[in-house]
Design a protein around this nucleic acid. Structure first.
Lengths: 226, 226
DNA sequence: ATTTTTATTTTGTCTAAATAAAAAAATGGC
DNA sequence: GCCATTTTTTTATTTAGACAAAATAAAAAT
């Protein structure tokens, strides 16, 4: 074994699997199932089984047949690096190239696979070492450290505080249309003025306008506290 | 045939072949040979034959067995788009991320494959619609138009004119070491003061310093006239 | 005109990744 | 504890791309 060869080459599609396992694993304590991965990646369970064996051989996942899969430390590091790259590119697209929040994902999905440590370090610096992406999700540091998410539901903001609208929980057409009519858009500054006790509805100030919105709305809007 | 499906999906390695054919074709009038492509791409002639047949099926090249290959209009458009993307990314890396001229190629080689028209348009705008890359090579416009190269050899500059050092013709270690000792670097502004008739050597002003360099040196340094 | 050399293509294998169909293991209900 | 169902794995194929060895075409030399 050549000691200077202690890094593993990870292919593009292996990276995609690692990311899927990482994101599925976040919301649960148990190991991630083959079917769940297949569904998320729009592929077949048989393909997933195959890949899990390979990833296991490379030491990126802990895999017990029929028992689901978890990431090893190596796998977690790989995943965090991908998340870091994805989110930094998203910041770049929005801050520097004037993309809107909803256009960035597909492109960032490609850019995150570019392999160059220097590129990412320089990009990070160029962007002013941002801590969150345009959706309010935290950007892991180079060594994999994380701020806990500062993204909250609007309904959880306390009275008097201000947040910037960074995303939606319900991304259905009807909801987006509704937001459009109410002229609520990504990036808007929202200050919570008052909460009605009996129905949980909120009085808010949004870019100078006063608005009264139902609890349901406030439950489906993500904001980033400022 | 669905008329809205008039674009061909080109895979990553197809793109690499197209680029190789394009660059080899520039320097010659005849069709490009299989072996030449193989040598440039560090692959085997058999692999090239295989790929040429595929590219021909897709209408990207004109291919006659044993007779070499040329790009179709479609192929040229594809190549120019790749060159455009490659060079724009190089400008980005140098202007925005402080890469040096010699570090950009490998990364740009990856970035050029990112598929998003909007991304490139926005990047172009962000960079101020540059006409040349950091090596002084021209950047094709969106519809494939080209300024002729404004890159020259230092020896071809006329007396009194100024150029910015953008590259080397001879990239041997000895030459690069020599430049280093003489403190001649990429980006330096060089003004030609005088040319000695009998040996073609040049007196130059480089960032305020006076220097006397041989014809051989002047023949291996590229400058971009200002 | 024939032979030799060189360039190119064909053929058969190989690997990575995907799929469908078949087999095996796990699980929930009784 | 056993059966039916669901989940997962295995096996056999497929496709894109690459390569080595063998075959063939073109060019050069005799």
């Amino acid at each position: 074994m050549y000691f200077y060869e202690n890094f593993i080459f990870v292919t593009l599609s292996e990276e995609d699997y690692i990311k899927a396992i990482y994101h599925l694993g976040k919301t649960q304590t148990a190991a991630v199932s083959t079917n769940a991965i297949a569904k998320r990646m729009a592929t077949k369970p048989s393909s997933v089984s195959d890949m899990l064996r390979k990833l296991s051989d490379k030491g990126l996942v802990n895999y017990k047949r029929y028992k689901g899969v978890t990431l090893t430390d190596e796998g977690i590091a790989t995943a965090l690096n991908l998340v870091r790259k994805h989110r930094l590119w998203e910041v770049f697209l929005v801050d520097k190239l004037e993309f809107t929040w909803d256009e960035v994902h597909e492109v960032a999905e490609q850019l995150e696979h570019i392999k160059s440590e220097k590129l990412i370090d320089k990009l990070d610096q160029h962007l002013g070492f941002p801590e969150v992406d345009p959706h309010g999700d935290p950007i892991p540091s180079k060594n994999g450290e994380f701020k806990t998410s500062i993204k909250k539901l609007l309904k959880d903001l306390s009275i008097g505080t201000t947040g910037i609208c960074v995303g939606v929980k319900d991304s259905s057409k009807t909801f987006l249309k509704f937001l459009d009519r109410k002229k609520i858009a990504l990036g808007d500054e929202i200050k919570v003025l008052e909460r009605e006790e009996f129905d949980g509805s909120l009085h808010i100030d949004i870019d100078g306008r006063d608005l009264h919105i139902s609890k349901q709305i406030a439950t489906n809007l993500y904001v980033k506290e400022v």
